[in-house]
Simulated scan of single mutants.
Amino acid sequence: MDTTHRDLERDIERIDAMLHADEAPRGRRAAKGGGSEDESGRKGGRRSGREAAAARIEVIDLGEVDGLGIEDKDVLRTLRELATSHSTFAEAYAGCFAGSVYLPEAPGATRKRVHFGFFLDDARLALLNIDGAYSGTAEGALTDDLSSYPSAPRALYELLRHLIREDFLRLVDVEGELSDIEERIIAAPSRLRGEDGRILRRRRELMRLNGAYQQLDELASTIAQDDDGLLPRTDRRLFNTLSQQAQRLSAKAQYLREYCVQLIELKDARADARRDATNLYLTVVASIFVPITTITGWYGMNFSNMPELSWEYGYATVIALSLVIIAAELAFFKWKKWL
C-alpha cells in the first residue's frame, strides 16, 4: 500500500511540474514565431497578455458581497443565496462565473469539511467564506500562493486541485480497509461484531463523497465550456483535466459503495450458511435417534404376549439392533455428505 502511495504522489508531483513548466515554453514560442499578439489571442480564446498578469485574489465574508462592485443583479442574487447552498456548482453569466464549493470531510479526516463561494471574472477571483467552513486548509495554505498564478481561473483551478489532491489515496486506503473486513468475514464470520455498523458508516461517507465529486465534475465542465471566451485555452484545458479527475474519483467512490453492499451481503450469506449448518447438524442428530425412540416406545408397551420380553437374549438383541441402525444411518449421512 505504501509503495502505491509513493508512486501516485510522484506522478502527481511530475504532472504538477509539467503544468507549471508549460507557461514559459509557450511564451517563447509565441515570441519566436513573430505572430501578432491579437493573432495569438484569437487562437487561445483571449489575449495572451492577460495570462502574464498576476491573479487578483480576494477573501471576504459572504455579507461583504455588495462591496465587490458587481452590477449584475442575477449574479448578486446567486452569491447572496450561497448561505443556504450545500452543494458544488458554477453558473455562467456574461463575463463571469459564480458558484459554490462544498466538499464533505475526506476519509480518514485528511480534509475537513470545506464550504465557500466564489466569483470569477477575467481579472479577479473572490472567495466567499460561508458559515466559517472555509477552513484553514484552503485559506491559510493557499490564498497567498494563489496570487502568484498568471490568471484568476488558473488560481481557482489550483485551489480546487489542492482540495482533492489526496482523495484518491484515501479512497485506496478505504478499499484496503474493506478488503481486510472481507478477509475476516471469510476466515471467521462468527467473531465479527459491529462490522455492519462500520461498513454502513463507510457507505454513507462514500455516498456523500460520490455526490460531491459528481457536482465538482459539473462545475469544472461548466467553466471549461466557457461560451463567452473568458478563459485562456490553457485554463480551459486545465478545467477539463479537473473534470476528468472528478469523474475518476466519483467512479472509485461508487465502486467502493457497491463493495460495501457486497460485504454486507457476504456477511449475511456466511451467517445464513452457519445457521443452516447448525440446523443440519441438529436434524441429523434427531434423525439418528428416531428409530431408537421407536424401538423404545414399541417395547415399552409391555404386553404379556410379547415373546422378546421373556427371551434370554432379548435385551442384547435390541442393543445390537439399535447399534446397527445407528451405524447404517451414519454411513448414509456420510454418503450424502450431510456430516
Rank of each mutant, 00 (worst) to 15 (best):
R203W: 03
E175P: 05
D121N: 12
D173P: 01
M207F: 15
L216A: 10
T88M: 10
I12P: 00
A17H: 02
L125N: 11
L128R: 04
Y259R: 13
R257E: 11
H115Y: 05
P189N: 10
I181E: 10
S287D: 12
A269Y: 06
S179Y: 06
S40H: 09
E308N: 08
R202A: 14
M306D: 12
S147K: 15
H115V: 00
T3R: 09
W311T: 06
R198S: 12
P25H: 03
R29A: 15
S179K: 15
I199R: 07
E64N: 14
S304E: 12
R113N: 00
A24K: 15
A52V: 03
Y157I: 04
I57H: 13
I292E: 01
A21G: 13
N240E: 14
T84M: 04
I12S: 09
L282P: 08
R46F: 02
I325N: 06
L238Q: 02
T88E: 08
L230H: 05
I164T: 09
R47A: 00
R191T: 13
V284I: 15
Y315H: 13
A123P: 00
A54V: 06
Q225Y: 06
Q225F: 02
R184H: 14
G35N: 08
R14L: 12
S87R: 14
R14I: 06
A52Q: 10
D121P: 03
L266W: 04
W335L: 14
D122V: 05
A327F: 11
K73H: 08
V174P: 01
E91W: 02
E64A: 15
A138N: 05
V114P: 00
H86A: 07
D2W: 05
D276L: 04
F289T: 07
Q225W: 13
E175W: 05
G69T: 04
D38G: 01
Y315P: 09
L159S: 01
D61I: 00
V59E: 13
D276Q: 11
Y259H: 10
S243K: 13
E195D: 10
L163Q: 12
E205V: 08
I288Q: 08
Y299L: 14
E183I: 03
L103K: 04
A286F: 04
T143C: 11
L79W: 10
L125I: 00
G297C: 07
R198K: 15
I325K: 07
I319A: 14
G45I: 03
R193L: 08
A106I: 00
L321Q: 04
R47P: 02
T294H: 03
T296C: 09
A30V: 07
A320H: 03
L76I: 12
Q225G: 04
T143D: 02
E329T: 04
I12H: 09
L230R: 01
R237N: 04
P291C: 11
A106K: 02
E139W: 06
Y259Q: 09
R184T: 05
F332G: 03
V318R: 15
L339Y: 01
Y281K: 14
L323P: 01
N210C: 10
